[in-house]
Design a protein around this nucleic acid. Structure first.
Length: 278
DNA sequence: AATGTCATCAACCGCCAGATG
DNA sequence: CCATCTGGCGGTTGATGACAT
């Protein structure tokens, strides 16, 4: 038995919201909080489906929303995050306080994608982007918070958005195998890069002047990677599965950035941290 | 001024995973 | 274990306004 479409019920309003509907929804949520979207319209006295109410609140009515005027910094961040994460707009939005996934998605599709595809005469204003393939994937139980905290989260400080992944990542390393070293201080030189399955670099391009903590974090990851590399992967491929990530996150729990996350680390966040770490 | 084209973005759709009974 | 419910996500659509002809 299939579910009936949420918004197909007769007698419900569709299309643009009126100011009165906005006020009713805002007042109701301010008084009663978010959640229970299916029953919310009935309780609030709105002729809308719950899904529509949720969307209206999250994308438009929430008080902490910034709208329009995406700054150059935000733009750069969107591009970089898109390089790392692909079309995972909610994850990207989670790194941009006050921005919604819908707004970023629209901005990307209408502005950034075109600009990146067609650099201006004076050169590209933004770093080139390899558009990642779209994928709908299996969500990791261990990494999925009970409810989404997207957009409410300031970057790197709140519960991570739920993470989806289709299959273990395969990393291809184009240099001599790294051997884990018991003494991290003597860990081999950084590889030029470790591209992941989507072609994005998992290691920062500028590795000089990095803090000891940051290096330790990277080293922890490399230990993990190398541990699975040296014996089994003569072809230069490393398979990073959920357990490895979990082990890594468990073993390396010391950095300020990770502590702020308060939960397990996923590869996307790891990649982001490695990129963003001072 | 009328018409056509393009850009923007709010809203909708369909699917999925986790929760629940 | 299974069926269903619920919330969340990314892709797409369509209304609207701006701009060009």
């Amino acid at each position: 038995m299939g579910r009936s479409p949420c918004c197909a019920k007769e007698g419900l309003n569709r299309g643009a919201w009126t100011a009165l509907e906005d006020k009713i929804l805002s007042d109701y949520i301010k008084a009663n909080g978010e959640g229970g979207w299916r029953d919310l319209p009935k309780r609030a006295g709105l002729k809308r489906c719950g899904k529509s109410c949720r969307l209206r609140w999250l994308n438009y009515l929430r008080p902490d929303i910034k709208r329009g005027n995406i700054s150059h910094d935000e733009e750069e961040l969107i591009v970089r995050l898109h390089n790392l994460l692909g079309n995972r707009w909610s994850l990207i939005a989670g790194r941009l306080p006050g921005r919604t996934d819908n707004e970023i998605k629209n901005y990307w599709n209408t502005t950034l994608a075109k600009r990146l595809a067609k650099p201006s005469a004076e050169g590209p204003a933004l770093s080139p982007c390899r558009r990642a393939p779209t994928y709908r994937t299996t969500k990791r139980k261990a990494l999925s918070p009970k409810s989404s905290t997207r957009s409410h989260s300031p970057p790197l400080t709140a519960t991570r958005p739920r993470v989806t992944r289709a299959k273990p990542y395969t990393l291809s390393i184009n240099h001599p195998p790294l051997l884990p070293n018991d003494n991290h201080a003597e860990f081999p030189a950084w590889p030029p890069s470790i591209p992941n399955a989507r072609g994005t670099s998992l290691l920062p391009s500028s590795r000089n002047n990095r803090s000891e903590e940051a290096r330790d974090g990277d080293l922890g990851f490399l230990d993990l990677a190398c541990g699975n590399f040296d014996d089994e992967s003569p072809n230069g491929l490393i398979s990073i599965d959920d357990k490895m990530l979990d082990d890594w996150a468990t073993a390396y729990d010391g950095s300020a950035a990770l502590e702020e996350g308060k939960d397990m680390l996923d590869l996307e966040s790891l990649a982001f941290l490695l990129e963003e770490w001072p």
